[in-house]
Design a protein around this nucleic acid. Structure first.
Length: 582
RNA sequence: GCUACUGUGGCUUAAUGGUAAAGCACAUCACUCGUAAUGAUGGGAUUGUGAGUUCGAUUCUCACCAGUAGCUCCA
């Protein structure tokens, strides 16, 4: 290996480097707490982790001690040696060490797998590798343990909860510092923080998972919806609205009661038997059933901005990203089987078109049959195949998310990233042969007989709430003019120019812009600071000079003073910007 | 739900086993000041909720509630 391969530019080396650091972490823990059992410890996107079965949880003080021990190990310059053992020898060794989790891993390895170990000093760990050659490669001042949490063995809540220590490491201290600084800066974009600062939305103790939207937040939401409606009309959708609360019988018929009741809110009033909808499809299907359909009518695309309530586990709530009440930009498409490929393509195109306005890069997953499912396996396999073919046809890169489909069908999910690169599912496209059956949906075919339509459930934004949170973090609160709660603010420099400022204000208002004003007796620098912090796209500075020559001086967020112009020129410029959605 | 941690005026933070400090914000007054903070004065918290230990708790203990990170789950 030549020297220039020892760099994080080389992904393989980066992984080996961080994986070795994970081993150093395990070695340090074993030195300090010999009774702790090892589980697994991989390299991940921004660092590594190791899972331990420890009788005592690791406190922050303990974490510091472990980190210190890791630095020591790095300085001990231990050589990493790889060796291989047969299955029997490997089992014998880990059993002697009391490493029961490793034994379980070995037992689950397919026959014929080469079982390799890496040894550094007194520490040996079963591992496929690769690793770096010596612990001296890991710079003692460029590693950091970042957090300690619980994590279930093999990711299964039925299993024992282990202690996971997360950490990261870099080639040098500068890179580590840069990384930590980047994380600090990313936290400034957190929608929960910006939501308060920009007076958009917030959550209160009184309603865990039930967000409150303030006037500013409603503007962003409504602008987004206006755009959404335009695009959906163009794409041939019609909009409906169905009740939030419906008879329990309906939820039995749909299978939600059976498959989803743990997350449903039931009403305990004496009329009895009513539940708050956790999904929109049953209501939507009743709308479909209101009349008889001809095959000539299909496909039918019915959209609904449906408000759904779901009792999510308390530990999963996260700002607007994961809530207990959300507005879904849902739609149900009813079609004949031959429509399926083109309808799937249409939905994917619509998602791509809308996301591209925001410049979002998305990741696609194909979620397959879950453990709790409706219908027969052949239908499922067929549906999964159809979705997979659609992705291949569109040349979309995707990964399989096993057992994560809806209980009525497999789905294609579109994921977006938040400020800390956490992935959130937004758009989804679900192919459903079950619900039409359950609800006995029909259309009359060319043969004059009744047939069963196929159904697609889909969202583009997903949860409006989540999407707004993602947008807030994406723009760091500096919404483009078309979304910004306030597009422009007028700021007279002194009382002398207040009348002129009012004149400008009124004209902008009449032109249909969201305009604010700052007529306080404050210095212009102070007003600018506040408007800047509120991330208002345009500030109009109006002093004696402007009043005299009938112009306005424009300050643009992020760019500063862009000079004087006429109000008409400014209106043209801003209109254009709003139109272009830039 | 699980593991760990956190919870002080609207917001951000300080402090202490003996009845809470500051900045921002807010109110009043003065200043009329040209591109990221003018100055002064004032009002506002019994320290998430409940219980316990104690002569006395915001500070210690427990329970509950809420939040943060992650696991599980999921739009």
């Amino acid at each position: 290996m030549s020297d220039n391969q020892y760099t994080f530019e080389n992904e393989e080396y980066k992984d080996a480097y961080r994986h070795t650091t994970a081993h150093i972490l395990a070695q340090a823990v074993k030195r300090l707490y010999p009774g702790v059992k090892l589980a697994i410890g991989p390299a991940i996107a921004d660092g590594f982790y190791y899972d331990f079965d420890s009788p005592e949880p690791f406190t922050p003080e303990v974490i510091e001690q472990i980190e210190a021990e890791m630095r020591k190990i790095s300085k001990e310059k231990l050589t990493l040696e790889r060796f291989e053992l047969s299955r029997e020898e490997a089992l014998k060794m880990v059993n002697e060490q009391g490493e029961t989790y490793k034994a379980e891993l070995i037992n689950d390895l397919p026959e014929g797998t080469i079982i390799s170990f890496y040894k550094q000093g007194e520490f040996t760990d079963m591992c496929a590798g690769p690793h770096v050659d010596t612990t001296a490669r890991i710079k003692a001042n460029a590693l950091k343990l970042t957090s300690c949490t619980g994590a279930y063995w093999r990711g299964d809540a039925e299993n024992k909860m282990l202690q996971r220590i997360y950490g990261t490491c870099f080639m040098n201290k500068e890179q580590l510092d840069e990384h930590l600084k980047m994380i600090e800066e990313a936290k400034l974009r957190d929608h929960r923080k910006l939501g308060r600062e920009l007076d958009l939305y917030a959550l209160y103790d009184e309603g865990p998972g039930f967000p409150f939207y303030f006037p500013n937040g409603m503007i962003v939401k409504n602008q987004l919806l206006e755009f959404w409606r335009e695009e959906h009309t163009k794409a041939g959708y019609e909009e409906i609205s169905t009740p939030l609360i419906l008879n329990e019988d309906l939820w039995h018929q749909s299978g939600h009661y059976e498959n989803y009741k743990d997350k449903m809110y039931f009403l305990g009033i004496d009329e009895g038997g009513f539940a708050v909808k956790p999904m929109n499809c049953p209501g939507g299907m009743l709308v479909y059933k209101r009349r008889m359909w001809s095959y000539r009518d299909l496909p039918v695309r019915m959209a609904e901005l449906g408000i759904v309530h779901r009792h999510e586990l308390s530990g999963t709530l996260h700002g607007l990203m994961r809530v207990r009440v959300l507005t879904q930009d849902d739609a149900h498409l009813y079609m004949m089987p031959e429509h399926i490929p083109s309808e799937i393509a249409g939905v994917i195109d619509l998602i791509d078109k809308i996301y591209s306005v925001f410049g979002f890069k998305y990741r696609v997953e194909l979620s397959t049959r879950p453990k709790k499912f409706m219908g027969d396996i052949d239908t499922w396999n067929n549906a999964e195949k159809i979705l997979e073919d659609a992705l291949i046809e569109k040349n979309i890169e995707y990964r399989i998310n096993p057992e994560d489909g809806a209980f009525y069908g497999p789905k294609i999910d579109f994921h977006l990233l938040d400020c800390l690169k956490r992935s959130w599912q937004c758009a989804t496209l679900q192919l459903d042969f079950q619900m039409p059956e359950r609800f006995e949906l029909e259309y009359v075919g060319a043969d004059g007989g009744k047939h069963r339509p196929v159904m697609i459930h889909r969202t583009v934004l997903g949860s409006l709430d989540r999407f707004i949170a993602i947008l807030t973090e994406h723009y760091a609160g500096a919404f483009p003019a078309w979304l910004a709660p306030v597009q422009v603010t007028v700021m007279p420099i002194t009382e002398r120019t207040q009348a002129y400022a009012w004149e400008i204000f009124d004209k902008l208002n009449e032109a249909g812009f969201r305009v604010d004003s700052d007529f306080r007796n404050e210095k212009i620098g102070f007003k600018i600071r506040e408007a800047q912090m509120q991330k208002i796209p345009y500030m109009l500075v109006l002093g004696d000079k402007e009043a005299e020559n009938g112009q306005i001086t424009v300050r643009k967020r992020g760019e500063g003073d862009i000079g004087a112009m006429t109000l008409n020129d400014f209106i043209a410029k801003l209109s254009d910007e709003v139109q272009q959605k830039v």
